[in-house]
Every structure is written in C-alpha cells, then in structure tokens.
Design a binder for these strands. Structure first.
Lengths: 109, 109
DNA sequence: CGTCTATATGTGGCATAGCCATATATGGAG
DNA sequence: CTCCATATATGGCTATGCCACATATAGACG
C-alpha cells in the first residue's frame, strides 16, 4: 500500500468515528486499524497532530478525563461545526473516488 | 476538494490511460481533467516528473515524435512490466476505498 | 504583421501530511 | 520486577503535488 494514498483521508475517518461518540486518540487509531481489517494503519504520531489541527479548526473539542485506575485520556467530541462539516467531507470523498473510477478502470465490478 | 487526497493517485491514473494506447504528457493531463469532469486536475508540473519516475522504474517508456506542422511530443507507452503492474495497482486502490468505507460511513448508498 | 490563446515540455522551490524514532508514564500479566 | 498494552507527545525526514516561471510553435483574429 503506497502510504501517500492515505493523505487527506484521516480527516473523514476521524470525524466519522467521532460522529458515533466521543473517543480518545489511541482508541481512534486502534479502531481504524481494526475496522479496516489492517489495511489502514495510522500511526499515532500522525493522528495526534491531526487531532490538534481539527481542534484548532473548531471541528472537534477535546477534554481530559482522569479516572482512578486509568491513565489520563483526552476525549474528543464533534462540535456543531464539525457535525455540520461531515456530510460535505463524505460527499467530497465520494465524488473523488467516482472521478478516479471514471479515469482509471478501477471499479469493483 | 482537499488537494492532499490526490496524492498517490496519479500513478494508477497515468498507467490506466496508457493501457489504452500511447499518449503524451499534455494529453494525459487534459484527459484526466476531462474524464473526471473537472474534479481531478493534475498540473503538468506534477505530471512530467511523475512520468520520469515511472520511466525510471521501467513501467513506461517514452520516445520523441516529431511531425511537421506539430511541436515535438514525447509519447509514452506501457512496458511489459508496467502492464503487469497495473492490475495490482488497481487492486490496491479498490482495497483502499473499501477500507475507508468500512471505517467511515462514506459509501454511495 | 502583431498579439493572444492553446499546445507542449521543462525546472526550482514550497507546503502538507504521514512516517520513524524517541520520550514519558501507568496498569496488568506473568 | 520485567514486559506488554495502553496513552499522549514531539522533532526531523520524505514524498508528492502545487505555484511560478521559462521556452517554443501553430493557429486565430484583428
């Protein structure tokens, strides 16, 4: 898998996972790996900076949660702006893959 | 359209277009733009270097063609290695989008 | 005849986002 | 008491596409 393919996809992935419910960084990384059956594997070193970027953009919001018997975790949830942005992100992705499929005969068939 | 999405996709696109028949750089750029209905627009400044890379890798092979009444053009065609590599590239792409769809609810439905 | 646009190839420097290595810290299993 | 999984964080590297710029010709339009 050319690693370059992944560029720009982390956003929809993270936003979609946070659409279900608030999650913390490490959980997001593991979920992506698991649900994609190992095909996608975002290193946490890429994920944390992405989370900071999304937070700065105002699409997600994080807060620390410390429970006894657990390490501290930063849970992120979608903001209203983030929830509003998600459909457009999904549409962009869909249009993008359709465009590729029109140029390269790459469709599932 | 986040420009980052395109990263790593030029390869399959070029290879697929050359699978039909030999073409020159400028034609490839225009075809990508046209067939994708404007969604994909690779700048020639990205395309030419990509062609050189593919040639160095031995997947495509270019030769100059000068016709009177036309500017000089460099036509590229798939090599045997390139033709052999294409199905794997297409498979990678398919697996990749399926993986994204399993993580983000992004499917066409 | 001059200018403009489309065609055609090419290069140097920039930006972005993911990767690797590394660091820190805790809970639980053995 | 060591090791692994969990959890967050940062600095430097790399790849690939983007922008600006350069060069050159054919054809259209005035």
């Amino acid at each position: 898998m050319q690693p370059e393919l992944k560029k720009g996809t982390a956003e929809v992935l993270i936003l979609s996972l946070l659409d279900d419910r608030p999650r913390h960084g490490y959980e997001i990384a593991k979920l992506i790996e698991k649900r994609s059956e190992g095909i996608l594997e975002f290193h946490v070193a890429s994920l944390y900076p992405m989370l900071y970027r999304l937070e700065r953009r105002g699409w997600i919001e994080g807060r620390w949660l410390e429970k006894s018997g657990q390490r501290r975790r930063r849970f992120y949830k979608l903001t209203t702006a983030g929830r509003r942005a998600l459909p457009a992100e999904r549409r962009t992705w869909r249009e993008f893959i359709r465009a590729i499929e029109r140029v390269a005969q790459v469709g599932d068939a």
